[in-house]
Every structure is written in structure tokens, then in C-alpha cells.
Design a protein around this nucleic acid. Structure first.
Lengths: 127, 127
DNA sequence: TTGACAATACGAAGATCTTCGTATATATTG
DNA sequence: CAATATATACGAAGATCTTCGTATTGTCAA
């Protein structure tokens, strides 16, 4: 198996994935600039991380142009699902419901958020 | 600052915390036996982890008896809140609501769970 | 073609995590 | 008390993560 396969992304990797999900495919320097806002990181560091992520299969790379273009491989949704499942597993005995309860009970949700969640639950009830 | 302070617990540490939260204060061998079910780990490894967790302030230790008794320091709720907040930060742009939406939309909740969550939301709406 | 610049590749250092072997200390029992 | 069992302490190895310095490669202009 390749390096770190089947493992959740590290903090650095996740920060990069967030950028890629938000911006779509991008070059190293673009990613690095964007990352600067939330997580200052040198150019070669970002590059190295992307190279490792490529090895791990977390991103794809288009080498057509001189400036390689990286893109997140896993769909955002798939990855986030697995992150939530992972936390549920590690901290909530595998129960996503418990995780949700915990999240809701501590948080000050906006009315809008709360309404959205209620709608979602209503839809689930219908099925 | 002490070792790894302000950092989220590692997988091994979290596994131990889960045992301590479930069983209350316990000796190394008790913890190790319990852990065997979910995460086979040798005795000295568990011991070492606990010693490190003590340094980090994740657990307390009662040395009165020959067999030291370890206990989770942070309240379960506090730690779990910070874990959820951490994931929201790292993967959902800081939005707990988005995290919850993601968790709910993918999961097959039992009717009971769904009802419980709806009750919680209703209560929040009242306030 | 060559010089200058821009981008990638590579390697290694320093931290942390997990694991375990071994040393040391403390009971227990015959 | 001596022998044995049981606990804890310590240190070090092997992995992974992050970071960065430096080497290499590719591009463009004069």
C-alpha cells in the first residue's frame, strides 16, 4: 500500500484540501497564497505537502503546463463524511447521533441554521 | 508549556480517555484489558501513554496504592466539545452547523435518535 | 546560446506518536 | 531472608508530519 493510505488527512493536508474544494484546481503558488490567510506556510512546504498528497492519492496533478495544477481527488462530501464518521468512532463510541447532540447542545445556532436542520430532519422523517 | 499542551489528544490518548470516561478511575491493567477489545495494546505501551498523558495534564494519578489509579482530568463534555469544534474548524470552515448538516444528511438515524434531536432543537427554539 | 528567473524535486532535520525491551522498585510467599 | 511475581520508570527505535535549504530542470528574452 502507498504511504499513509486509508488514513485521515493531517492538519496540513486538510488545510490544502479546503483550499482546493473552495477554489477548484489550482497551482502551487495560488494555493500557497490562499493558505497564507489561514495557515502561513512557505512555498516549498506547500509544494512538498502536495507531492506527498499526490503519493497518497489525496490529490491529482495535471502536468500539462509548466505550472502543475493540483486538484482534490476525493469529493468533498465523501471526505467530510469520513471525517465525521472518524470522529464519531474515536470519541462517541461510533454514534453519529451522539456527536450531533453534542454539537447542537453546545452551540449557539442561528435561527436560520436551526430551521435548516429541522427541515432536513422533517424530510428524513418522511422517508 | 508542558508537552503537547493545547493540542487535541492523539488516537491512542483518546482511546484511553474513552475507557476512563466509561469506567471511571482505573489502574493500568484494567485500562489495558478494556482497551484490548477495541485497540489491542501492550501493557507497557498503555503505561507509557498514561505517563505521557499525565505530563500533558490529560489525566490525574493517584499513587496512594501500589497500583496507581488514573482518571480523566477534563470533563468528558468539555473535551468532546473541543473535539467537535476542532473538526468544525479544520474541515467545515468553523461552522458547527455545517458539520451537523453533513453528519445528518449521510447518516441513517434511528427514529429514536431523530426524535431526540428534534426535541433538542425545539427546546432551543423556545429560548 | 546563454543568462536570469521561476518552478519542481530531493533530502534531511526536528517534533511527535506509538511501541516495546529492559531496568528498577515493591510486594508476597515459602 | 530469599526467590518470585508484579508494577512502574526509562530509554530508544521506527513512523509520520512539517518545515525548509538546496539542487535540478524548464522557459523566455536578448
Amino acid at each position: 500500500m502507498a504511504r499513509g493510505s486509508n488514513r485521515r488527512p493531517t492538519d496540513g493536508e486538510l488545510a490544502i484540501l479546503q483550499v482546493l474544494w473552495a477554489m477548484g484546481p489550482a497551482t502551487v503558488s495560488t494555493i500557497q497564497e490562499k493558505l497564507e490567510e489561514s495557515r502561513p506556510t512557505g512555498y516549498t512546504t506547500v509544494l512538498k505537502l502536495l507531492q506527498i498528497m499526490l503519493e497518497k492519492g489525496l490529490v491529482t496533478r495535471d502536468e500539462t503546463e509548466r505550472r502543475h495544477v493540483y486538484a482534490a481527488k476525493e469529493k468533498e462530501r465523501v471526505m467530510k463524511r469520513s471525517l465525521v464518521a472518524d470522529l464519531a468512532q474515536r470519541a462517541f463510541g461510533g454514534s453519529t447521533a451522539k456527536l450531533v447532540m453534542q454539537a447542537l447542545s453546545e452551540e449557539d445556532l442561528s435561527d436560520r441554521d436551526r430551521a435548516e436542520i429541522e427541515t432536513l430532519l422533517k424530510k428524513m422523517r418522511g422517508e
